[in-house]
């Protein structure tokens, strides 16, 4: 089957088949395949260096990659540059948040905003500044504050909010709970549950089992760049305990 150029109503949100990806000269992913259905939340788990971040970067086009199939709602995105993929409705919340520290919160949100009538590609639900502030009330009081003067947890919220401003249909979240206080993780879980309820598809790379178990239906376990296990969230604990990767210490 070849990818049709036009998004189709039936195709899943994200289809990946046989994905190879590289970091510099080193190949990180080897023939990875995964699917994210519409409105579905999927966890991507594995030890550090297994290739979780690289998978997300390969999807958004920030890592060199090659795939038999890499399609968003049926439309082939394997040859598109990063900005074009983002404009098709993919929001990216990177590891380490990557807030523009020199710019204010409002300016950060503004850069995330989709502009121009030219790209009328179908995306997800529309977001305004007021709506993202309603989702993360902490941001409301600090719109004029430079991003660099926020706490890690607040930056994490801003990073998600900034991605939402582009009206994504699929949100890629890279370790949203890493380095964040447990209490902020709880707020993040609440926000992500609401996003999921609004119809967004989520692909979450995580090492925190609480967050995944609260949000995701299915999980993929990768190890050294290869798919090791896939299945319902319930089965993950048993699968990963033997692999010594996920869960409690």
């Amino acid at each position: 089957m070849t990818a049709s150029p036009v998004p189709t109503a039936m195709a899943p949100m994200l289809e990946i088949d046989g994905l190879d990806a590289w970091y510099g000269e080193a190949q990180i992913l080897f023939g990875l395949s995964l699917t994210v259905g519409r409105g579905e939340a999927v966890a991507l788990v594995g030890r550090n260096g297994a290739g979780k971040s690289t998978t997300l970067k390969a999807i958004i086009g920030l890592a060199r990659r090659r795939a038999r199939r890499l399609a968003l709602r049926g439309a082939d995105i394997a040859a598109l540059p990063t900005h074009a993929i983002a404009r098709l409705g993919v929001g990216y919340v990177p590891e380490d948040r990557r807030i523009f520290t020199e710019l204010t919160v409002a300016e950060n949100l503004d850069l995330g905003r989709r502009t121009g009538a030219s790209d009328a590609a179908p995306r997800g639900p529309r977001w305004s500044v007021e709506e993202v502030v309603a989702l993360f009330p902490n941001l409301g009081g600090m719109l004029d504050r430079p991003g660099g003067q926020m706490s890690g947890g607040e930056q994490q919220m801003l990073s998600v909010a900034r991605a939402l401003m582009g009206d994504p249909a699929l949100l890629l979240l890279d370790e949203p709970s890493e380095g964040v206080a447990p209490i902020v993780v709880e707020q993040m879980i609440d926000a992500l549950l609401r996003l999921k309820a609004s119809g967004l598809s989520l692909l979450i790379s995580e090492q925190n089992s609480a967050l995944c178990e609260a949000i995701c239906e299915r999980a993929y376990l990768i190890e050294q760049g290869e798919l090791r296990w896939q299945g319902a969230m319930d089965g993950l604990a048993a699968a990963s305990e033997t692999a010594g990767i996920f869960g409690k210490i």
């Binding site: 594995g46 030890r47 550090n48 297994a50 090492q207 010594g244 990767i245 996920f246 409690k248 210490i249």
Partner: peptide, 11 residues
């Protein structure tokens, strides 16, 4: 953060 960036088993 001696265990940052490590999986549970490694931690």
């Amino acid at each position: 953060e001696p265990t940052a960036g490590m999986a549970a088993g490694e931690r």
